[in-house]
Design a binder for these strands. Sequence first.
RNA 1: UCCAGCGUAGCUCAGUGGUAGAGCGGUCGGCUGUUAACCGAUUGGUCGUAGGUUCGAAUCCUACCGCUGGAGCCA
Length: 497
Amino acid sequence: MLCRAQKTSRRRQDRHQRTRRYFQHRLGNQIPRMFRLTATTVKDAMQSSAPRSDIVVQGWVRTRRDSKTFSFLELNDGSSLRSLQVIAKDSLPNYGEVQKITTGASIAVHGDLVASPGKGQRWELVADRIDIVGRAEDSYPLQKKGHTPEFLREIAHLRPRSNLFGCVFRVRSRLAFAIHTFFQERGFVYVHTPIITASDCEGAGELFRVTAIDPASPPRRADGSIDYTKDFFARCTYLTVSGQLEAEAFACALSKVYTFGPTFRAENSNTSRHASEFWMIEPEMAFCDLQGNMDLAEELVKYLIRDVRENCAEDMELFAKFVDRELLARLDFVLDRQFQRVTYTEAVELLEKSGQKFEFPIGSGLNLQSEHERWLTEKHFKSPVTIFNYPKQIKPFYMRLNDDGKTVTAMDLLVPGIGEIVGGSQREERLEVLEQNMRRHKMNPAEYKWYLDLRRYGSVPHSGFGLGFERMLMFVTGVSNIRDVIPFARTPGSAEF
RNA sequence: UCCAGCGUAGCUCAGUGGUAGAGCGGUCGGCUGUUAACCGAUUGGUCGUAGGUUCGAAUCCUACCGCUGGAGCCA
């Protein structure tokens, strides 16, 4: 009998052989002998506790420096911010070719990991074989020197090879993982709400239409208007602006659910905080009031900050050094401090008493402007603030009406530098009140029959919120433009990549 | 969509009506256990696009496009 470790080891070997046979079959003998999916990552090599002989590392060359009898190559494979220094001696059979390697080229290196005699790194890889996998033409736009984010945005396909964007997208991955961990640990069920929907669920935001109709010859009604009953879904359909309504249906069955997926808004918004395609996290909890909702939102924000602080330390150091010098202090401050919580009315009073001159008026029934939110988070509280119980006329139909008849159980979580990062509410669970709200918002209750059914059959108090994934990522990285935390950003007039 | 600013070499920028510039990068050579290496030479331009004013426009005017900051909408 094999023990478990032996079985795992054998399975791994089998898999490697299969992979290797596959590539040899596909590429014949052109592939380097050392080309293995099991290559050592730069990250593992750098973290090594002892010298290691006979390893393979593969990646992209950041820079090459020649010395008298050898070359230094800096090799990066994206496994971490850091690059591995490779020593290529002139005794290598293809040293002439190695000296032609330029920034951006891809190589595979076989050799021994040894303690580095130079300053600046603990380990270096002394190569006994270097395979040049793919050369880089001398027009390769990335230099060793820093580039502006604006320039890198124009080469979105190459920018993940830069230090800054490598860090951003490693943290993005970790943050997404942390979101799932947070909810899964707390017994939430992950629900995939539809991307294509028929309902303009919040009445908020312009929608992208989804259609299979030929724009050159659309089916028409007698009056000449386009007949969408002849369209693919036999009705008007759109890309989702929120999974909330569907999440409510699942919360009223599985109790605690969350969605995490793409969201689309066709707003002509040209700001550093808006994108046409972004990701949103929307938890929805049955038997949960506004207090529980706010508690969860604050707990989530803190959890996510703590997670990337602990698990992306090296990347976070880069942000602190090159993006925002106060980043780490601000994040730690947020972790240490109780989030502030005030009602809309209290917030308005604070603003009125502030003595501060604002461009826009403050007053009951008026929306808080960016400058007001900024004053509250950045000047007054100097910490995240949750504002709740807003006037009903400035909030959507589904929010629960308070007993005062004037305010609804809305809550916005504001953070310094970004503004609104979470928006949520307790939902109106009373059928009659919800129908009244809909009529007040000039909506036809008949078109929302399935949503109203949730109030007809076993209605329960329930709450939820939306957390903007990219805004959270901006907050934890200090990156100030949303286009720089999305791999291939979609904004008005821009979808090149 | 609104307000303001910007658009000059691959990148970062100087050049305010009279011959198109620098640093970095690239290329070539030298030096060197180097670290955003160093030294020398060299390469590099439809001055965002289209009109207009002028003897003459990178420079002044108009429109459009793009980017940046702010506003609205929101996550």
